[in-house]
Design a protein around this nucleic acid. Structure first.
Lengths: 340, 340
DNA sequence: TTGTAGGCGTTATCAA
DNA sequence: TTGATAACGCCTACAA
């Protein structure tokens, strides 16, 4: 593997000159420049990025932390992150991450990462501080949820998310128009999760629209298709042959759970939307293809991903963009699962 | 950011000793060891991985090249790759990649990557040589397709894929049992793509089963939902009110295309499976949720991903595993789109 | 316009 | 058991 020294020798110049040429400094005589370029070509030389990183203290890599890549929602976002980052010469480095591995994270990222994007993830404020104080900014897609020090966290973490309250209001209004008065919500009740914001926004929206939320109407779908299926199936088998749920509509904090609920209804002979109306919150590709297709709030994924990445890049370049966190607007997409 | 030198100073030893402690060599006196560990803790020291890489010439990073991450098929595989790699202390570094960027690739991977996994991708044999000769092994998930020097490529590239002929035969047998005699195939005819293997295997299977394939029955769905929709929609609008396609069954080289075809049928009033029977080739989550649900060949994704990653790790560790390429078995999953 | 040399944080060899 | 010290490949003052 050719090194800079070899290129220099071959071109009959010093390593510095090779560097100058490769970094496009104009102070090199054209003739010398050509000699160097030729030597580079002949040797098939390429700079060693690791050595460069060591010197410049820039890795040109950004890490993306995802919990579960199997969710198409996240895959789509990843794509947009990557293309935005690549356009600025950065590499994306993704990692599925489970909570409580923050120490490991610090170890693994040491010197290797210039910035971090959280994708539906949560880091302790201590860890956030750790990275930020080392000049490694962090931006989150979806607002991280924490029960305790909301305000404290929000100072540190910069996030991009939907204006869930506005979006949920629109959805609830739509459901009311269809005559629904009692609406259930399915989220992920296991631990801290950003779906909690969607859940809360939904309750707030119900209240804004003059509806009450019954705590018993909170379902736990664990964010997954299978769990959602199991949860609703269980409720359905409880009510037995009566086929009458206490609620007539169900809002799911993500589309996979909505699809799982749909499947449970199908298998238990519950007609959607006639007997139960179901809506999701992301609009993944699958959601338009279920039977019936799902009404959803469409999460503007490319926009969110691009905004987050740009924001991160700015922070990495030391620009103190004043805007800390951003809310985007979701679009209500009405399909057969709520409107016959 | 603490360095090894600082730790050494604080502990009153030399950097070498710090290294010994950190790398768990037992030749250090226990007392000294404790001093060092304390200094490490106090300073919050963590080794700089970039510096380590420079010295050891190992990055502990593997790159995964994907074309389109939006396909759930690939997302699932990525997940399995990542967890297998992580278990061996490797980082996964994924990159969406379009052909004809091989030079850029070499640049970007220089010194930074120990191994490469191709996910439905294709690299020229020149590029393969480039990496392999530099000790960077390459393994492909899905067998790369090339029109010309099959044999030549196969020597260099190691791949994991389905035994498509066997799988297609099973599928065709199933379709015959349903009474189908004329079967169309949808693949991606734009350029070189691994779907071509599925396509060819399918034709071979048709022949094995005594059926003929009409060249006119090759559809081009471009590998995507939308394109598949458009392609079939066009055929359907051509036949107009007759509602009679020359073929009665359609095998799609991937599930997204099958789902797109399904959607086209729905929007054009074609009943599936009565008027047209449709099958896919991967079994992504969505495929069980369409209406009707799709019959598919299930690609054993976790197995394939794990096998590929393990193979790569072995190659990286210099083990010349004799097995070059592997074929896995796909399972036929019969659902409503072929069996009423 | 080009060359020299120090340093980035590790690892590892060789003495002490 | 420990300590110097030379790489690893690149960048960049500073000197020539």
């Amino acid at each position: 593997m050719a090194t800079r020294q070899q290129v220099a020798d071959r071109a009959g110049v010093s390593v510095a000159v090779v560097s100058y040429v490769l970094n496009n400094r104009k102070l090199v005589k054209e003739e010398t420049r050509q000699k160097v370029l030729e030597a580079v070509r002949e040797l098939g030389y390429r700079p060693n990025l690791v050595a460069r990183s060591l010197k410049t203290k820039k890795s040109n890599q950004i890490a993306v932390l995802v919990r579960f890549l199997g969710n198409p929602f996240e895959a789509g976002i990843l794509l947009a992150i990557e293309s935005t980052a690549k356009a600025s010469g950065y590499f994306v480095f993704f990692q599925t991450y489970e909570e409580a591995q923050e120490e490991q994270l610090k170890e693994l990222f040491m010197g290797r990462v210039d910035g971090i994007i959280l994708l539906g993830q949560f880091l302790s404020s201590e860890t956030l501080d750790y990275f930020i104080s080392r000049g490694i900014p962090i931006v989150s897609i979806t607002r991280p949820y924490t029960e305790l020090d909301d305000r404290d966290m929000d100072i540190r973490s910069q996030w991009i998310d939907i204006d869930w309250h506005g979006a949920m209001r629109e959805l609830v209004q739509h459901l009311r128009q269809q005559g629904h008065e009692r609406i259930a919500i399915m989220a992920d009740s296991a631990g801290i999760h950003h779906y909690e914001w969607r859940f809360r926004a939904c309750i707030k929206a119900l209240n804004s629209e003059g509806l009450r939320f019954e705590p018993a109407d909170r379902l736990n779908g664990g964010g997954r298709f299978e769990q959602a299926y199991a949860e609703l199936a269980q409720r359905l088998s409880l009510i037995g042959s009566v086929k009458k749920l206490p609620f007539t509509a169900l809002i799911c904090a993500n589309d996979l759970m909505a699809a799982g609920s749909l499947a449970a209804c199908r298998d238990h002979g519950i007609a959607v939307p006639e007997q139960l109306t179901i809506a999701g919150c992301e609009d993944i590709l699958m959601s338009a293809q279920t039977n019936p297709p799902l009404t959803v709030l469409r999460y503007p994924r490319p926009e969110a991903a691009e905004a987050a990445t740009r924001h991160l890049l700015e922070l990495m370049e030391g620009k103190n963009s004043c805007s800390s966190s951003t809310s985007l607007k979701a679009e209500l997409v009405v399909r057969g699962s709520t409107a016959p």
